[in-house]
Design a protein around this nucleic acid. Structure first.
Length: 614
DNA sequence: GCCGTTTTCGGCCCGACTGTTTTCAGTCG
């Protein structure tokens, strides 16, 4: 294998000493396009060109694997908006061979350290270019040295303050650069929103950004407040004085930015009440959604911004026009959408993945936007643990907690014997747990208990219990808890074998990922989803804040193909049942309705669905 | 790099803030 060949695709030994090139799959190609976008950005390329690669990457990420395969086979990728001649050519080469000379050459010009420089706050492509060309800085370490030597401040366009800010950014990079789980970000944001609403000067307040869009991880918090201009200073003062604020990083007339001790950053923006709906929409994003909305506005002779929706024609900026009272009025986001001929798009759907097209037909009386599943639709959940395995609450404590939530039923699925680390149950302990569950149901006094198991899928795809044992249960959750490092083919075959087992009711946490901590194991999810649909097996949407697995990006298409979802908290204590709050939000993000989620059905409906499978 | 009811070139969404400047470039969202 030559050195040059290692840069591009993956080389595999096809036998007899012949080395063949292996093509890339859809997600690998998406990652490569994203990387090309970043590299072009660092080269100071036209920003619109870099965006073309990045939006191509996102389109592939959101695309169903089957659709991608079909389009590659039929050569119809170019029919999609955003895929022109150049991208179709590059995607085709990566798909066929895994190699792309264009990328190899680009990559060879830019060291890893330079890519890392983009993570330093305040550094963009232009400043990095100047640092490379004038100081030879090509890594965060070299940048730190140059700052300490005072050489950065001497560059044109840089200064003392920039140099200090870069040093701080380098020091904080590890701690503050990362994203945060949605669950943790919400815990910080909710009291702040309540606090803002409690201020006499504040008319309206909301958290916007990726938190409001229910993305599984959140980069920073955005708070939008409606207040009179003369009251803005008092609101800003309150915000910057919050006890958890460690540092105020920016402070202007209508905006303040702070950093909390946890590393989470937060922006506050104060707008006049008549601009609130526009500002809330703008700062909720996503960026792709906003771009599409603005383009739609322009096509109607209007200009959309956080300031309002003003006529595109005439003198002055959109802001000036809004201040002259030229904006259309919108008391709510729904009215904003209506001005553009659209039905209201829930925040979690605003990812620039076709929601505007659907909202248009919905407004026109055609296909309606779905009524997304809501927390109140849930009547129970199936994947929960007790003190019998690695839970912290007893069977009856868990039932009491479920009853308190208003749930009609609760499924108990403790670990099976191979999960020794989790005190998994053997056949005898499982039998006595089942007896305890039947007895509790006979005694009554709370939510109905379903007897299940979270049965390990062994490395070869067999289950951890015999069929006879499984037959004593109401349902079976099958999950992978071992041998995470198998090859994609092995893992896929392993999971598909379990899904094809007649006693398996649902597949637990399909990829094993732990957000911000552990990557998913390698598995061909398209084949797993196909097998689940073919065998009428449910796939779980594990609602644990660190999992949210299966990923929301895959649910829309899978549900259209009649894949049934079970929204499970994977609770290990009574408080853990509330994880469904995170799960419902991610399910909504995957366009799921109550009909797509089994645990919105009543007990009889659940039992009927299970019996029909057998 | 993409795109077209201003169509094959010349645009491409819009504004705030910072720091370095003295009218603006760069970064960020």
């Amino acid at each position: 294998m030559t050195e040059g060949a290692e840069i591009g695709g993956r080389e595999v030994d096809a036998g007899r000493g012949v080395v063949a090139l292996e093509g890339m799959n859809k997600n690998e190609i998406a990652e490569r396009l994203e990387e090309i976008g970043t590299l072009l950005e660092l080269q100071g390329e036209n920003p619109f060109k870099t965006r073309a690669y990045q939006s191509g990457a996102r389109a592939l990420e959101a695309m169903d694997a089957d659709e991608f395969a079909a389009r590659m086979a039929a050569g119809t990728l170019g029919e999609l908006k955003g895929f022109g001649e150049a991208l179709v050519d590059k995607v085709g080469k990566l798909h066929a061979t895994g190699r792309l000379e264009f990328y190899d050459k680009l990559r060879a010009q830019i060291p890893d350290g330079v890519i890392a420089l983009l993570e330093v706050p305040g550094l963009g492509p232009k400043k990095i270019k100047a640092l490379r060309e004038q100081l030879g800085v090509e890594s965060p370490e070299a940048l730190g040295e140059a700052c300490r030597a005072g050489r950065v401040a001497e560059l044109a366009g840089f200064g003392e303050k920039t140099q200090v800010k870069i040093l701080e950014g380098l020091a904080n990079r590890a701690a503050y650069g990362k994203r945060h789980r949605w669950w943790d970000a919400r815990a910080v944001a909710e009291p702040i929103v309540e606090g803002l609403r409690g201020l006499a000067q504040v008319r309206r307040a909301e958290a916007a950004g990726s938190l409001r869009r229910n993305l599984e991880t959140v980069g920073d918090l955005d708070f939008i407040v409606a207040a009179r201009a003369e009251d803005a200073a008092a609101v800003t003062e309150w915000f910057c004085a919050l006890p958890e604020v460690k540092e105020v990083t920016a402070r202007g007339g209508t905006k303040a930015s702070v950093r909390f001790a946890s590393g989470l950053q937060a922006d506050l923006r104060i707008v006049p009440e008549e601009q609130f709906a526009f500002a809330l929409h703008h700062f909720t994003g996503s960026k792709d959604h906003n771009v599409a909305m603005r383009q739609r506005a322009l096509a109607r002779g209007l200009s959309l911004s956080e300031w309002g929706l003003v006529p595109d024609a005439g003198e002055g900026t959109a802001k000036e026009k809004a201040e002259r009272g030229l904006s259309l009025r919108a008391e709510s986001e729904a009215e904003l959408f209506a001005h553009l001929g659209l039905a209201f798009v829930p925040p979690e759907l605003r990812e620039g993945l076709g929601e505007i097209e659907v909202a248009e037909t919905a407004a026109g009386g055609g296909v309606a936007l779905p009524r997304l599943v809501e927390l109140a639709d849930l009547r129970g959940a199936f994947h929960n643990h007790t003190t019998e395995s690695d839970g912290k609450a007893s069977l009856l404590e868990m039932r009491a907690a479920a009853t308190a939530l208003g749930w009609e039923y609760l499924g108990i699925a403790d670990h099976s014997k191979s999960s020794v680390q989790a005190r998994g149950l053997d056949e005898a302990r499982l039998a006595s747990q089942v007896a305890a569950i039947r007895a509790a149901n006979a005694a009554g006094g709370g939510a109905w208990l379903f007897a299940g198991t979270e049965c390990d899928i062994l490395p070869d795809g067999r289950l951890d219990f015999d069929d006879g044992v499984l037959a004593t249960l109401d349902y079976v959750v099958a999950s992978v808890h071992s041998a995470f490092t198998q090859s994609e083919d092995e893992m896929t075959a392993r999971i598909v074998r379990a899904v094809e087992h007649p006693r398996v009711t649902m597949l637990g946490h399909a990829t094993g990922r732990l957000l911000l901590r552990r990557e998913a194991y390698k598995v061909d999810l398209a084949r797993v989803i196909d097998a689940a649909i073919a065998n009428r097996v449910i796939i779980e949407l594990n609602a644990h804040p660190s999992r949210l697995d299966l990923d929301w990006r895959l649910w829309r298409r899978a549900a259209e193909r009649r894949l049934m979802c079970a929204l499970n908290p994977d609770a290990h204590n009574t408080a853990g049942l509330r994880h469904v709050e995170a799960g419902v939000r991610v399910a909504r993000k995957g366009w799921l309705t109550a009909e797509n989620v089994l645990n919105t059905r009543d007990r009889a409906g659940v039992e009927r669905w299970w019996s029909e499978r057998r």
